[in-house]
Amino acid sequence: MESKTLHPAGLTADMTTIELMAEPLRAGGWLVSEAYAPPARRPRTRGAPPLVRRLLIASAVAYFALVVLTPLVAVFYEAFRKGAEFYLASLSEPDALAAVRLTLILALIAVPLNLVFGVAAAWAIAKFEFRGKSLLVSLIDLPFAVSPVIAGLIYVLMFGLQGWLGPWLSAHGIKVIFALPGLALATIFVTVPFVARELIPLMESQGKDEEEAALVLGASGWQTFRRVTLPNIKWGLVYGAILCNARAMGEFGAVSVVSGHIRGETNTMPLQVEILYNEYNFVAAFAVASLLALLALVTLVVKTIVEARTHEVSAR
């Protein structure tokens, strides 16, 4: 065997040995990627007779139309009953505008906080073993298990005038209940699970091999997170964020308890809808409701896009 000089970089220029060695490999045909075959078309079901099939489809569509589609159409129909002008006037009414603004502010507080918390919690749960892990998982699920009204009442019990911290807070002139802080707390409480729940299974399935590989290659903890962890969970994060946002904007029970229903101040959009409806101001109520319905439609579209993206990435 001829001697080969060691390149300063640690590699030799002489490739002949390796090239010769690789010849049988190529001949074996294994350079062709097995993961490259296009997905086969799903075969048509042949078992069910056409009549049964049509009946099943028809009943599914009818059910969906009755339960989901009709109410959605009704919302817009009612909102525009007195014409577009009246619709716009109802929305530009000061109290309605205040409700829209408050809802947006609450979403802007709750979503980023839950994004940060969700990533941190999911990372800890998926990649490390520690004492109290199952307790943390249960705590994250708690808001799903507890009725939102109870969640609101907990905060009233803690921060309300008769509550534990109430006297101290009012002595210092801090208002939590019937004000923005209370609404924010209630919104955060009900939206805690969305991001973390989305990320935990994703991160668990990805394991920590890639992070370890990055660390061995000299990446810092932050670089590892930025360049490896974050890109891998990107779409899960977007998905969790839109679901979290939809809930933050649409939440009724928890915020209703802590709101106090002060017009133009502590009424979110869902609360505003209720008040208008109770005052028999149906058109205005449905006008505000139509904005929430629109939000739902946008959420669905974004969700579909993200799901398509995720499939594309995993099929790539």
Binding site: D209, E210, E212, A213, A214, A219, R227
Partner: peptide, 25 residues
């Protein structure tokens, strides 16, 4: 240099960027 049993390649990066990773960080 560490080679993992299941490769642990960065799935969101091309082969080129996988190899370049250690230099880029």
């Amino acid at each position: 240099g560490f080679v993992f049993q299941h490769y642990a390649l960065f799935r969101h990066l091309t082969v080129f960027e996988n190899i370049a990773f250690g230099l880029r960080v």
